[in-house]
Design a protein around this nucleic acid. Structure first.
Lengths: 354, 354
DNA sequence: TTGAAAGCGCTACCAG
DNA sequence: CTGGTAGCGCTTTCAA
């Protein structure tokens, strides 16, 4: 017989204890804490009272062993530094909790591959996995599928990979920016890219460039930022703005990059938007502050999180989608004072030249 | 007999399955995945090979039922909006993971009391609880104590409450700011407070004010911000800076408040630091950017997290502290260009008056 | 070193 | 509606 091996043993009040004190069976205690089981109101009250007196709380770990549901959702956050991600995490966690689930958070440490941590999460028998800006191998996707653990990739997708994905309409966002900058009379445009392989980066860029081509705008410089970071945006902007024929509008792959771009421009003695317009992507909280007042595409984080929950079967009607779904939610252009209408300025100059 | 009630059943490969395929007992499989149990190298290899082929992964949920250790640490984050908290969360999660634990994250939704969610976490049998900028009642503290679940309050403490606490030296930080502002020739100082009951707010303020008194500086305005928010800082600064005899230095209870203060000053046509010096508290990443370049007290987040882990017994040597510990880590003054030396400026004016 | 068996705390089935 | 009982997948004695 297994005798109390652990010093902590005995600390916990079990259903058995409650059962004994009021002289009923342990099953009855279980029923009192179940929504579905049938139990008389009177008995339920007796149980609850005794439970409270003893400080009994059902052990959900033991429960999950039988129900095969831990009610835990794993969230893998590849990045917490970019201010966009706290927003995403907040939204995700709120919705997970609202659906009655707990969040098991994992932040890969530097150099740790997401593939390596999935088995860990699986061992914890999580009911679903949400990957933000991270990807897994198709082998790992298969392992998750074999265990019936749905996986959704948030803010990124991998064509051909058989997991669900939710992202905002990055191609459409790029197009919106192109339309807007052209409509406001910008003539020498530039796109500052981030990680080559990130779908967010690729789609924003291709939407932007293809629309410019449609609009017969020929001059679009492209600069590799390398990363979605302030420093990358800063360095790229410096390079672009020091050119002889410098661009009159810079579109950055993300807001933080754009912040770097604005600071770089100011450091060069250029006015934003007077000399150069700056556009970002995400609409992080900082973009709204007067110091940057950044024109940007707002990512519909709330809707994206909702879509993720639905796909995972944690939303309204339960039951995860079986075929890999790829949901795309449309963003909105938010215009602030990091951009301006150059036609008006030009007209003004024509009427009253300096 | 309980027959597979759940549709998901059968999906999982169990130790029993592995045992059958290589014709050994299930206990042997268990031993192969245990550090301590004695098993021959050869057998271990056989087991691991078979396990890999079948895709077997131990079910840690089942394990924890016996070991009474889930290896999960609950982190309660009252706030993810203030940019200081993502930094804290990142650090905390990294250290929790490095110690071999998983993070169960809880973000109270608007209006949700922390006391109400603790039972939830306890049901998940977490091994420890970390509360950031949140407090629980002494009744709840007692419940946790009765279950031997250590609780540490991070960046806040409640005198008299019997839980562990880790914070930075907020009194000392306030003092450092006072010393610095006085030494650099500021004469009309102001402190912008946040939540009255927050120990962070109280201590920073009392350190600041008491040192000023020691230094025989009489004029220190105090303004209630109300909250640790950009808007609160902005509004408070507007009120202070519109006064006839306006202050020449503002010390805000936090960085985000200070950002609001800087923007307010600029909106009023005042130069920072030319007309007014601004000091914050926390040293969030944004404080380092040129647009704000905020002088502030850097909170030693890494050291604070380390202290929390030690107290909880998750650090180097295991074993939680039994008596409530209150650890205080010292911060550092980081001077940037939101403040200036007014003595130099004054001397200059005396030599060559405008 | 290995196998057999008990049981962690709970749910789910079966009778009554 | 309630009690009895069989296990969820695992660790841990105890014997061999």
């Amino acid at each position: 017989m297994a005798k109390r091996a652990n010093p902590k043993a005995g600390t916990q009040v079990t259903a058995q204890d409650v059962a004994r004190t009021i002289g009923v069976s342990q099953s009855t205690i279980s029923r009192a804490f179940s929504m579905t089981a049938s139990i008389s109101e009177e008995m339920k009250h007796r149980v609850i009272k005794a439970a409270n007196k003893l400080g009994y709380q059902p052990n959900v770990i033991a429960r999950s062993l039988i129900t095969r549901q831990t009610n835990m959702v794993a969230i893998v956050m590849a990045n917490l530094v970019d201010p966009f991600y706290p927003v995403v995490l907040d939204e995700l966690v709120q919705q997970v909790q609202a659906a009655g689930f707990q969040t098991l958070l994992f932040v890969p440490s530097a150099g740790q591959k997401v593939d390596d941590i999935i088995p860990n999460l699986l061992q914890y028998q999580v009911d679903a996995i949400i990957l933000t800006s991270a990807t897994i191998s198709s082998a790992m996707a298969r392992i998750c599928a074999a265990r019936d653990t749905p996986v959704v990739s948030f803010n990124r997708y991998v064509p051909g990979l058989k997991i669900h994905a939710v992202s905002s309409d990055n191609v459409g966002g790029g197009r919106q920016v192109a339309d807007y900058l052209v409509a406001t009379g910008h003539e020498r445009l530039a796109f500052v890219a981030a990680q080559r392989d990130a779908t967010t980066n690729r789609d924003r860029r291709s939407g932007f460039l293809s629309r410019l081509k449609q609009l017969k705008i020929e001059t679009c410089l492209q600069e590799e930022g390398g990363e979605f970071s302030y420093e990358a945006g800063y360095a790229a902007a410096k390079r672009l703005l020091r050119q002889a024929k410098r661009p009159d509008a810079l579109f950055f792959a993300s807001d933080v990059m754009a912040f770097g771009g604005i600071d770089a421009a100011r450091e060069l003695g250029l006015s934003v938007p007077g000399d150069v317009s700056i556009v970002g992507y995400d609409d992080v909280p900082l973009a709204a502050l007067p110091s940057y007042a950044l024109t940007t595409i707002r990512q519909p984080v709330h809707e994206m999180a909702k879509a993720a929950m639905e796909i995972l079967g944690l939303g309204g009607e339960r039951g995860a989608a079986s075929a890999p779904e790829n949901r795309i939610v449309r963003g909105t252009l938010i215009t602030r004072s990091s951009t301006m209408d150059r036609r008006a300025a030009r007209r003004l100059r024509e009427i009253a030249p300096a």
